[in-house]
Design a binder for these strands. Structure first.
Lengths: 248, 248
DNA sequence: TTAGGTCATTTAGTATACAAGATGGAGTGA
DNA sequence: TCACTCCATCTTGTATACTAAATGACCTAA
C-alpha cells in the first residue's frame, strides 16, 4: 500500500462518494466542511476539488460553492461517445497483446461480479462493473489511456446516478463475459464489436429512461404546464384569462 | 474577448511557451519566478502548474521544483496511440454532421497554412498545424472530445520538441488537405484513413529520428561506453583493468 | 585532487488571514 | 399575502506567513 498525500485522500474519498451516489448531483461541497473530517485546511481541499472539476465530477468556480456536477443530457451523450471510442481502442490493444494471464485476471473479475450479483449487493455490483472497464484499460499498460478511461467511466457513473432508474443495476455481467470470450478466442473485431455494443447498452440504460431528478426540470415543468393549461381551458375561462395576461 | 482569470492567463502563457519551445523540456519552473512577471502570488501559479501537470506538460510534485516535462519514448507512443483513436472519432463525427460551412472554415485554414509555409515562418507553421486538428475537434461540438484532443495535440508538440529534428516543420499541409478533400466528398472511411495515416506520419517524423536531447541519455551513454570500452580493450590493458575494478 | 560532509540559501507544502462576493432571512410597503 | 430591499452571515479568492525539505557551495580529510 503506497501512502497517499492528504489531498489525494480527499480526492478519492469525494470521488468515491460521488460515484456511489452518497453525494448526489447538486450536493453542495463547502471547502471547510469537507476539510474538517480530514483535519486539513481549505488549501488541500481546493486541490481535490480542482481535480474533480477537471474530471467533470464537480462544478465549481465563480465564487459559488462547488457542487456535485449535474451533467446535461447532451454532455452525457458526448461523454459516452468518447468513451466508446476509447474503449474500442482498449480492446484492440488488449487483443493485440493478449496473454493467458489476462484471461485469468478477467475471469476472476467476472466471478466476483457474478458473486456480487447473487448476493444482490447493488453497491458492490455497480462498483465492480466500473472496475471491469478500468481493469481492461490497465491491461493496455498505456497510462494515458488508463487515465482517460478512468475519468470517463467515473463520469458515466455520475450520469447513471442522475438519469438512471433508482435500482438500475448495470446487470451487464453477461455483456462483460461476451467481451472476454471474444478476446480469448482471439477474435479482435468481434471483441471490439461486443464492447462497443455493451457501452451502447449502458448508455441506453442510463439515458433512455424517464428522468428521475435533475437538469431536465424545464422539460418536466413545461409538460406539466401544458397539461394544466389544457385543463384550465376546459374548466374556467377566468383562470385561463389570467394565465394569458401573465404570459404577456 | 472574454476576460480570463489571472490563473488562466498564466496557464495559457506557460502552455504556449512550452508548445512553441520557448521553454524546452527540463526547464525549471520555480513558482515565484513565474509569478513575478504577472504580479501574482504563488497560489495562482500553483493552480496553473497543477493544470499543466495534469495535461502532461510539466512534471511536478514531491517537493522538487516543477520542470517542463520530458516524456519518455514509451509515453510518447502512448500519447500518439490515444490521439489516433480520438482523431479517428473526430473525423467520423465531423463527417456525419458535415455542412458546407465546415468546408469553408477548413479551406480557409488550409490557405493560412499554405501562406505560412511560403513565408517560411516555422513557428507560425507549427502553430497552425496544431490548430488544424483542434479546429476539426471543435467542429464536432463535443466539448469532452475537444478537451482531450487539445491536450493530446499539445502534448505531441512537446514530444516533437524533444525528439524531432531541429527544423522538423510538420510540412503536412498536403496531408491535411487530403483529409479535407475526403470529407468534402463525403467519403467517411477514406477521411478516417487519411487522418489515421497523417497522425501516424506525424508520429514517425517525431519519433523515428535520432534523439536530439533528453531522456535517452542513458541509452546514448551506454552506446558510447561500449565503444570506448572496445577501444580500450585493443589499446591499453592497464586502463581496461581499472575500468573493470571500478565496475566491481 | 577528490569524496564526503556541513551549512546557508532557495523553494515547495500547508495553514491562515483578510477582503470581497454570494446567500438567506427579517422587515417593510403595497 | 406577496414581492422587494437591506443587512448579517457564510463562503470563496488571493496573498502571505511559517515550516521543512532540497539544493548547492564551501570546507575538510584522505
Amino acid at each position: 500500500m503506497k501512502k497517499l498525500t492528504r489531498a489525494e485522500t480527499v480526492y478519492r474519498a469525494l470521488r468515491q462518494a460521488i460515484i456511489e451516489q452518497d453525494l448526489g448531483p447538486g450536493t453542495k461541497l463547502p471547502e471547510d466542511e469537507i476539510g474538517a473530517p480530514f483535519n486539513i485546511s481549505r488549501t488541500l481541499v481546493r486541490q481535490a476539488l480542482a481535480r474533480l472539476q477537471s474530471d467533470g465530477l464537480v462544478e465549481a468556480g465563480g465564487k459559488k460553492t462547488a457542487t456535485v456536477a449535474r451533467p446535461s443530457l447532451s454532455e452525457s451523450k458526448d461523454v459516452f461517445r468518447v468513451r466508446r471510442a476509447l474503449e474500442r481502442e482498449v480492446i484492440r490493444i488488449v487483443a493485440e497483446t493478449w496473454t493467458s494471464e489476462n484471461g485469468t485476471l478477467l475471469e476472476s473479475h467476472l466471478n466476483k461480479e457474478d458473486a456480487a450479483r447473487e448476493t444482490g449487493d447493488e453497491r458492490i455490483s455497480v462498483r465492480l462493473a466500473a472496475e471491469f472497464h478500468i481493469l481492461l484499460a490497465e491491461l493496455t499498460q498505456n497510462p494515458v489511456l488508463i487515465d482517460y478511461v478512468t475519468q470517463l467511466v467515473s463520469r458515466c457513473s455520475l450520469i447513471l446516478a442522475l438519469y438512471g432508474r433508482p435500482h438500475a443495476t448495470d446487470c451487464a455481467v453477461d455483456e462483460h463475459r461476451n467481451v472476454v470470450i471474444a478476446l480469448r478466442e482471439g477474435n479482435i473485431e468481434e471483441a471490439v464489436r461486443q464492447m462497443d455494443h455493451h457501452v451502447s447498452l449502458v448508455e441506453r440504460r442510463a439515458l433512455n429512461d424517464d428522468v428521475k431528478n435533475g437538469p431536465r426540470l424545464s422539460e418536466i415543468l413545461s409538460r406539466h404546464a401544458s397539461e394544466i393549461q389544457a385543463e384550465q381551458a376546459t374548466d374556467t375561462i377566468a383562470i385561463h384569462e389570467r394565465q394569458v395576461k401573465r404570459q404577456a
